[in-house]
Design a protein around this nucleic acid. Structure first.
Length: 202
DNA sequence: AGTTCGATATTG
DNA sequence: AATATCGAACTA
């Protein structure tokens, strides 16, 4: 049954704002590396101007409109991949962006993929996380409900921090970013750069 | 500041 | 159809 907070399927089928914080501490395993999630962001599909799915399904966002528990991977900036866990019932396009995590398995493989970096930086940031796990567009649509994603115990509410999402140009300023307080692997990325990309005329 | 490619928007 | 623009980042 959806609504259960003790099974992966139940959590993912529920409201994305409940699923997102519940995924903190969960472990995602892929291709020899496992990452314990420490930072995520919720995207509420058709109701969320910040979501890729806001304007309805496209070839790229199709996966988000499918059943929960699948992986939505997109390619951006001509070089990076980012991964989301699809949430909500089939037909609903909400998803949770995986922003950062701690490598808990396959450290050597992750180091190889990421190059020389402190261990805490291996999966610190959504594109780095994908790189460490070896995720790319071929993994778009991957079913995570058969062992790839394992829920942890519900995180202590006192340790879950919230704040505005990173890097969005136009979206309601909702605190839909969730992270585990005091985790060194949480991205320190500061998005608050004022938008000043206009071409200057005179 | 530069990278570098796909999706989306705009134009012919 | 062709072209223009910019992005749920990261490295230097």
């Amino acid at each position: 049954m959806p609504g259960r907070t003790d099974t992966l399927e139940g959590v993912l089928a529920g409201p994305v704002l409940e699923a997102a914080p519940r995924l903190l501490g969960a472990v995602l395993r892929h291709d020899g590396v496992a990452v314990r999630l420490t930072e995520v962001e919720a995207y509420d599909g058709s109701n969320d101007p910040g979501s890729h799915a806001y304007r309805g399904p496209t070839p790229r966002t199709e996966v988000m409109f499918g059943p929960p528990g699948r992986l939505y991977v997109y390619f951006t900036y001509g070089m990076h991949h980012c991964a989301n866990v699809v949430c909500g019932p089939d037909g609903t396009a909400s998803a949770v962006l995986l922003r950062a995590g701690e490598v808990v398995e396959g450290l050597d493989i992750a180091r190889e993929r990421r190059g020389a970096h402190p261990d805490r930086d291996l999966a610190r940031g959504p594109a780095r996380l994908c790189s460490a796990l070896g995720l790319d567009l071929r993994d778009n649509g991957l079913d995570l409900t058969s062992g790839a994603l394992v829920l942890g115990p519900p995180p202590d509410p006192d340790r879950v921090s919230t704040g505005p999402r990173v890097g969005l140009r136009q979206a309601p300023d909702h605190p839909w970013r969730f992270w585990l307080a005091d985790e060194p692997t949480v991205s320190r990325y500061v998005p608050a750069k004022p938008v000043r990309k206009r071409a200057r005329s005179r």
